[in-house]
Design a binder for these strands. Structure first.
Length: 103
DNA sequence: TTCCTGACTTTAC
DNA sequence: AGTAAAGCCAGGA
């Protein structure tokens, strides 16, 4: 499996708990900042945390979650992030100022 | 094989 | 500063 998806999975898998990364961030890490769209797409096709891919730690550039495509509800994702020690600026906006994934 | 679509990002007006 | 539009890559039909 050398697909781009696998690369994204590995990147997301390296995200430490209590930290969040944006799609573009991961896309850039894999070597293609223009593939940000596919990063999210990979998450959609990802096995989830069961496969070691914490999609809940992947958020928009603004830090907003993915309403409608989350694990069954952005509230659930929010709880998971909060449980990892991630702060929230708004009801659906992660505090990337303090939780942005620093490589 | 070709066309379309897609959890986004960035630049331009 | 805010809104609008285009761009990019890859997978699926």
């Amino acid at each position: 499996m050398d697909s781009f998806f696998e690369q994204v999975y590995e990147m997301v898998r390296q995200i430490p708990s209590g930290r969040v990364a944006s799609y573009g961030q991961i896309a850039r890490l894999v070597g293609s900042p223009r593939k940000a769209r596919f990063v999210g797409f990979a998450m959609h096709a990802s096995p989830g945390m069961a496969g070691g891919v914490p999609c809940h730690r992947v958020v928009f550039k603004d830090g907003s979650l993915a309403p409608g495509f989350a694990f069954g509800g952005p509230d659930v994702q929010k709880e998971m992030l909060l449980g990892e020690g991630i702060s929230f600026k708004d009801e659906s906006h992660v505090d990337m100022d303090a939780c942005s994934w620093e490589v």
